[in-house]
Protein backbone atom coordinates (compact mmCIF):
# COMPACT_ATOMS: atom_id res chain seq x y z
CA UNK A 1 0.00 0.00 0.00
CA UNK A 2 1.10 3.53 -0.73
CA UNK A 3 -0.20 6.58 1.13
CA UNK A 4 -0.01 9.69 -1.05
CA UNK A 5 -0.32 12.97 0.78
CA UNK A 6 0.64 16.61 0.39
CA UNK A 7 2.26 16.34 3.80
CA UNK A 8 5.16 14.06 4.66
CA UNK A 9 4.10 13.88 8.27
CA UNK A 10 0.50 13.07 7.40
CA UNK A 11 1.57 10.20 5.14
CA UNK A 12 3.97 8.90 7.81
CA UNK A 13 1.26 9.17 10.46
CA UNK A 14 -1.28 7.24 8.43
CA UNK A 15 1.30 4.54 7.77
CA UNK A 16 2.18 4.40 11.46
CA UNK A 17 -1.46 3.94 12.41
CA UNK A 18 -2.14 1.27 9.80
CA UNK A 19 1.09 -0.58 10.48
CA UNK A 20 0.09 -1.17 14.10
CA UNK A 21 -2.61 -3.50 12.84
CA UNK A 22 -0.86 -4.83 9.77
CA UNK A 23 2.79 -5.38 10.63
CA UNK A 24 3.48 -7.61 7.63
CA UNK A 25 1.96 -5.45 4.91
CA UNK A 26 4.38 -3.24 2.97
CA UNK A 27 3.08 0.26 3.74
CA UNK A 28 4.92 3.11 2.11
CA UNK A 29 4.45 6.81 2.82
CA UNK A 30 4.79 9.12 -0.18
CA UNK A 31 4.09 12.56 1.23
CA UNK A 32 5.36 16.08 0.70
CA UNK A 33 7.64 17.62 -1.87
CA UNK A 34 11.25 18.58 -1.26
CA UNK A 35 10.73 18.76 2.50
CA UNK A 36 7.64 20.98 2.20
CA UNK A 37 4.01 20.53 1.21
CA UNK A 38 3.16 19.16 -2.21
CA UNK A 39 2.88 15.94 -4.15
CA UNK A 40 5.99 14.40 -5.63
CA UNK A 41 5.37 12.27 -8.72
CA UNK A 42 8.81 10.67 -8.61
CA UNK A 43 8.44 9.77 -4.93
CA UNK A 44 5.02 8.23 -5.59
CA UNK A 45 6.35 6.20 -8.51
CA UNK A 46 9.26 4.96 -6.39
CA UNK A 47 6.89 4.07 -3.56
CA UNK A 48 4.70 2.04 -5.91
CA UNK A 49 7.76 0.16 -7.15
CA UNK A 50 8.85 -0.48 -3.57
CA UNK A 51 5.40 -1.70 -2.51
CA UNK A 52 5.17 -4.23 -5.35
CA UNK A 53 5.17 -7.71 -3.91
CA UNK A 54 3.29 -9.42 -6.72
CA UNK A 55 -0.12 -9.18 -5.07
CA UNK A 56 -0.95 -5.70 -6.30
CA UNK A 57 -0.60 -2.21 -4.85
CA UNK A 58 -3.34 -0.03 -3.38
CA UNK A 59 -2.82 3.73 -3.37
CA UNK A 60 -4.73 6.04 -1.04
CA UNK A 61 -4.59 9.84 -1.29
CA UNK A 62 -5.53 12.90 0.71
CA UNK A 63 -6.61 15.80 -1.56
CA UNK A 64 -7.51 16.12 -5.24
CA UNK A 65 -4.10 16.70 -6.76
CA UNK A 66 -2.65 13.78 -4.80
CA UNK A 67 -5.19 11.64 -6.64
CA UNK A 68 -4.05 13.06 -9.98
CA UNK A 69 -0.43 12.28 -9.18
CA UNK A 70 -1.36 8.79 -7.98
CA UNK A 71 -3.40 8.16 -11.16
CA UNK A 72 -0.50 9.31 -13.32
CA UNK A 73 1.98 7.12 -11.46
CA UNK A 74 -0.27 4.11 -12.05
CA UNK A 75 -0.82 4.93 -15.73
CA UNK A 76 2.93 5.12 -16.26
CA UNK A 77 3.50 1.60 -14.90
CA UNK A 78 4.43 -1.17 -17.32
CA UNK A 79 1.27 -2.98 -16.29
CA UNK A 80 -1.22 -0.48 -14.82
CA UNK A 81 -3.48 -3.28 -13.60
CA UNK A 82 -0.90 -4.03 -10.87
CA UNK A 83 -1.89 -0.94 -8.92
CA UNK A 84 -5.16 0.74 -8.08
CA UNK A 85 -5.95 4.19 -6.72
CA UNK A 86 -8.87 3.84 -4.33
CA UNK A 87 -11.37 6.57 -3.45
CA UNK A 88 -11.65 6.18 0.30
CA UNK A 89 -11.33 8.22 3.46
CA UNK A 90 -7.58 8.33 4.01
CA UNK A 91 -7.28 7.24 7.62
CA UNK A 92 -10.15 4.78 7.87
CA UNK A 93 -9.49 3.50 4.36
CA UNK A 94 -5.82 2.88 5.08
CA UNK A 95 -6.53 1.01 8.29
CA UNK A 96 -9.32 -1.06 6.75
CA UNK A 97 -7.24 -1.91 3.67
CA UNK A 98 -4.15 -2.75 5.72
CA UNK A 99 -6.10 -5.03 8.03
CA UNK A 100 -7.71 -6.78 5.07
CA UNK A 101 -4.31 -7.21 3.40
CA UNK A 102 -2.79 -8.48 6.62
CA UNK A 103 -5.54 -11.11 6.71
CA UNK A 104 -4.52 -12.28 3.24
CA UNK A 105 -7.39 -10.71 1.33
CA UNK A 106 -7.18 -10.38 -2.47
CA UNK A 107 -6.57 -7.03 -4.14
CA UNK A 108 -10.29 -6.69 -4.83
CA UNK A 109 -11.22 -7.42 -1.24
CA UNK A 110 -8.65 -4.95 0.03
CA UNK A 111 -10.07 -2.29 -2.29
CA UNK A 112 -13.61 -2.86 -1.14
CA UNK A 113 -12.52 -2.82 2.50
CA UNK A 114 -10.98 0.61 1.90
CA UNK A 115 -13.89 1.95 -0.11
CA UNK A 116 -16.50 0.86 2.42
CA UNK A 117 -14.48 1.99 5.43
CA UNK A 118 -16.84 4.80 6.32
CA UNK A 119 -20.12 2.98 5.79
CA UNK A 120 -18.76 0.04 7.77
CA UNK A 121 -18.54 2.05 10.96
CA UNK A 122 -20.89 0.99 13.72
CA UNK A 123 -24.49 1.92 13.10
CA UNK A 124 -27.03 2.81 15.75
CA UNK A 125 -29.44 0.24 14.40
CA UNK A 126 -30.66 -1.62 17.49
CA UNK A 127 -30.23 -5.38 17.62
CA UNK A 128 -32.60 -7.68 19.46
CA UNK A 129 -30.32 -8.99 22.19
CA UNK A 130 -32.55 -11.95 23.16
CA UNK A 131 -31.21 -14.56 20.80
CA UNK A 132 -27.60 -13.48 20.97
CA UNK A 133 -24.51 -14.61 22.76
CA UNK A 134 -23.61 -12.31 25.64
CA UNK A 135 -19.93 -11.84 26.18
CA UNK A 136 -18.15 -9.94 28.90
CA UNK A 137 -14.84 -8.65 27.63
CA UNK A 138 -12.48 -9.85 30.32
CA UNK A 139 -9.33 -8.70 28.56
CA UNK A 140 -7.94 -5.34 29.59
CA UNK A 141 -8.60 -3.29 26.48
CA UNK A 142 -11.94 -4.50 25.10
CA UNK A 143 -12.36 -4.93 21.34
CA UNK A 144 -9.24 -3.03 20.46
CA UNK A 145 -7.04 -3.44 17.45
CA UNK A 146 -5.72 -6.96 17.99
CA UNK A 147 -8.79 -8.55 19.56
CA UNK A 148 -10.99 -6.96 16.89
CA UNK A 149 -8.74 -8.26 14.13
CA UNK A 150 -8.81 -11.73 15.71
CA UNK A 151 -12.58 -11.66 15.96
CA UNK A 152 -13.01 -10.55 12.35
CA UNK A 153 -10.56 -13.10 10.99
CA UNK A 154 -12.01 -16.02 12.97
CA UNK A 155 -15.09 -15.68 10.77
CA UNK A 156 -13.18 -16.21 7.55
CA UNK A 157 -14.81 -18.84 5.38
CA UNK A 158 -18.09 -18.91 7.32
CA UNK A 159 -21.39 -18.16 5.64
CA UNK A 160 -22.97 -16.06 8.35
CA UNK A 161 -23.89 -12.48 9.06
CA UNK A 162 -22.48 -11.67 12.45
CA UNK A 163 -23.22 -8.53 14.40
CA UNK A 164 -21.65 -7.31 17.61
CA UNK A 165 -23.65 -4.80 19.57
CA UNK A 166 -22.78 -2.66 22.52
CA UNK A 167 -24.61 0.14 24.23
CA UNK A 168 -27.21 0.65 21.50
CA UNK A 169 -24.75 0.43 18.58
CA UNK A 170 -24.04 -2.48 16.33
CA UNK A 171 -21.10 -3.44 14.15
CA UNK A 172 -20.48 -5.89 11.35
CA UNK A 173 -18.18 -8.41 13.06
CA UNK A 174 -16.08 -8.80 9.90
CA UNK A 175 -15.15 -5.13 9.92
CA UNK A 176 -12.32 -4.32 12.28
CA UNK A 177 -13.06 -0.63 11.93
CA UNK A 178 -16.68 -1.11 12.85
CA UNK A 179 -15.68 -3.18 15.88
CA UNK A 180 -13.23 -0.49 16.94
CA UNK A 181 -15.80 2.22 16.55
CA UNK A 182 -18.04 0.51 19.13
CA UNK A 183 -15.62 1.96 21.68
CA UNK A 184 -15.62 -0.99 24.09
CA UNK A 185 -13.16 -1.34 26.94
CA UNK A 186 -12.29 -4.15 29.31
CA UNK A 187 -15.23 -5.28 31.44
CA UNK A 188 -17.89 -4.23 28.93
CA UNK A 189 -20.59 -6.67 27.94
CA UNK A 190 -21.34 -7.08 24.24
CA UNK A 191 -23.98 -9.11 22.43
CA UNK A 192 -23.12 -11.20 19.39
CA UNK A 193 -25.85 -12.30 17.01
CA UNK A 194 -25.51 -14.40 13.90
CA UNK A 195 -27.73 -15.49 11.02
CA UNK A 196 -27.08 -17.76 8.07
CA UNK A 197 -26.04 -21.41 7.57
CA UNK A 198 -22.88 -21.11 9.67
CA UNK A 199 -24.38 -18.96 12.42
CA UNK A 200 -23.92 -21.56 15.13
CA UNK A 201 -20.30 -22.16 14.21
CA UNK A 202 -19.68 -18.41 14.12
CA UNK A 203 -21.02 -17.98 17.64
CA UNK A 204 -19.04 -20.99 18.83
CA UNK A 205 -15.77 -19.58 17.47
CA UNK A 206 -16.38 -16.17 18.98
CA UNK A 207 -17.32 -17.70 22.31
CA UNK A 208 -14.10 -19.65 22.15
CA UNK A 209 -12.06 -16.51 21.52
CA UNK A 210 -13.75 -14.78 24.42
CA UNK A 211 -13.04 -17.69 26.74
CA UNK A 212 -9.40 -17.35 25.81
CA UNK A 213 -9.45 -13.64 26.48
CA UNK A 214 -8.89 -12.86 22.80
CA UNK A 215 -5.37 -14.17 23.15
CA UNK A 216 -4.36 -11.59 25.75
Amino acid sequence: MVVVSHSGRLAEGVVELARQMAPDVPLIAAGGLAGGLGTDFDAVSDAVAQAQSGAGVVLLYDLGSAKMVADLAVEMLGDPSDAVVVDAPLVEGAVAAAVAAQGGATLDAVLSAAASALTDLASDKPVDPEDGLEIVLTNAVGLHARPAALLASTLTGLDAEVTVSFSGHSANARSVLALLSLGTTGGDQVTVTATGPDATEALRRIGDLATHNFGD
Binding site: G38, T39, F41, G64, S65, V69, D71, L72
Partner: peptide, 15 residues
Protein backbone atom coordinates in the same frame (compact mmCIF):
# COMPACT_ATOMS: atom_id res chain seq x y z
CA UNK B 1 6.25 19.30 -15.48
CA UNK B 2 4.85 16.05 -14.07
CA UNK B 3 7.98 15.49 -12.00
CA UNK B 4 8.73 19.03 -10.96
CA UNK B 5 5.60 21.13 -10.50
CA UNK B 6 4.25 19.62 -7.29
CA UNK B 7 0.72 21.10 -7.23
CA UNK B 8 -2.35 20.21 -9.24
CA UNK B 9 -0.93 22.11 -12.19
CA UNK B 10 1.81 19.45 -12.54
CA UNK B 11 -0.36 16.46 -13.44
CA UNK B 12 -2.82 18.72 -15.29
CA UNK B 13 -0.40 20.57 -17.56
CA UNK B 14 1.75 17.45 -17.72
CA UNK B 15 -1.17 15.43 -19.07
Amino acid sequence: LISKVGGAAGPLYGT
